[in-house]
Amino acid sequence: MANSETGTSTTNRLGGEYQVFLSFRGPDTLTFTNFLHQAWVKFGISVFIDDEGLRPLQAIDNSKLYIPIFSKNYASSHWCLDELARMVENSFKHKEDGKENVILPTFYDVKPDDVKLNIVLYEDAISNLEQNIEDQKNKFSSKDKETWRQALKEVSRTKGWELKKYQS
Rank of each mutant, 00 (worst) to 15 (best):
S4I: 02
M1I: 12
W161D: 12
L14P: 00
S168C: 09
V110N: 12
G15W: 02
L65Y: 15
I103L: 05
Y18I: 07
N128L: 08
M87E: 06
S63G: 15
V47A: 11
L121D: 08
E52N: 06
E154D: 02
N12P: 01
W148G: 04
D135F: 04
E5F: 06
S71M: 08
I45R: 09
A59S: 11
R149D: 13
R157F: 03
Q19L: 11
I126A: 10
S23V: 09
V88K: 03
I103E: 10
K159W: 05
I67H: 01
K72T: 11
K145H: 07
K153C: 09
Y66E: 06
Y166E: 13
G44K: 14
K116A: 14
I126P: 07
H78D: 12
A75P: 00
T10C: 00
I103V: 12
V47Q: 10
E89P: 00
E52C: 03
V20P: 00
T106I: 14
P27Y: 13
L54R: 14
S141L: 02
W161L: 14
S71A: 06
Y166L: 11
V41D: 05
V155R: 08
L54W: 03
G7I: 08
L22D: 00
V110K: 13
E83N: 04
K153T: 12
L117T: 08
E83I: 01
L22R: 01
V120I: 09
A85G: 02
G16S: 08
T8C: 05
G98M: 03
I133A: 12
V47C: 09
V115N: 03
S91P: 01
V88N: 02
G7M: 07
I69N: 04
F48V: 02
N128S: 11
N90T: 07
A2E: 04
I45H: 08
E100Y: 04
K64I: 12
I103P: 04
W148K: 04
P112N: 06
A75C: 05
D82E: 13
Q136S: 10
D124C: 00
